[in-house]
């Protein structure tokens, strides 16, 4: 498989004013190449949740998107910490460590990672104090 399109983005910590900008660009990019709308909507949900997680919980981070020649889309969200102390809890629906500030804006439902896991075709998360890397993939519509 070869990469046909590669994009990189940066997310800043607590940059609530820009929340969703990366996800919007990802969706627009997929839309512009005629990507299947149903898969695109799943990607939009996952990218938004991941982008928000990076902004709320991490010290910002980097996002890459690779679209392969078979239509597979892989998104990688890599942040420099502080890491997720208990991954099992973080993947439990309803469990959240979001700040009061984030909750006041409607974040912190504890549905971020569960939503991402549910809509992705492949999901991998590695976390330590040095940072978290989330890799998710979506197969093209058959």
């Amino acid at each position: 498989m070869a990469v046909v399109l590669h994009k990189e983005y940066k997310v800043l910590r607590d940059d609530y004013g820009s929340a969703g900008k990366v996800s919007s660009d990802i969706k627009q990019t997929l839309n512009s190449i005629g990507f299947d709308p149903k898969v695109m909507r799943r990607i939009a949900v996952a990218s938004y949740e991941s982008e928000i997680n990076m902004l709320i919980h991490a010290f910002g981070g980097d996002i890459t998107m690779d679209i392969m020649d078979d239509g597979t889309v892989t998104l990688v969200f890599k942040d420099p910490g502080p890491g997720i102390p208990d991954l099992e809890k973080a993947l439990t629906p309803g469990w959240s460590t979001a700040s009061e500030k984030a909750r006041a804006m409607g974040f912190g439902a504890g549905m971020g990672l569960p939503n991402i896991q549910r809509v992705s075709d492949a999901f991998d998360i590695q976390s330590s104090e040095a940072g978290t890397t989330l890799t998710i993939s979506f197969r093209a519509a058959q």
């Binding site: 929340a19 938004y48 804006m105 409607g106 439902a109 504890g110 939503n115």
Partner: peptide
């Protein structure tokens, strides 16, 4: 009003009823 619930369960074409008026509502 919880954005992740809305992201996870809303469907295209629906009207979204909320009391949230933060700009993130627009992105969602």
């Amino acid at each position: 009003d919880l954005l992740s619930w809305v992201m996870g369960n809303g469907e295209p074409g629906q009207a979204w009823i909320t009391v949230q008026v933060h700009p993130n509502v627009i992105a969602v």
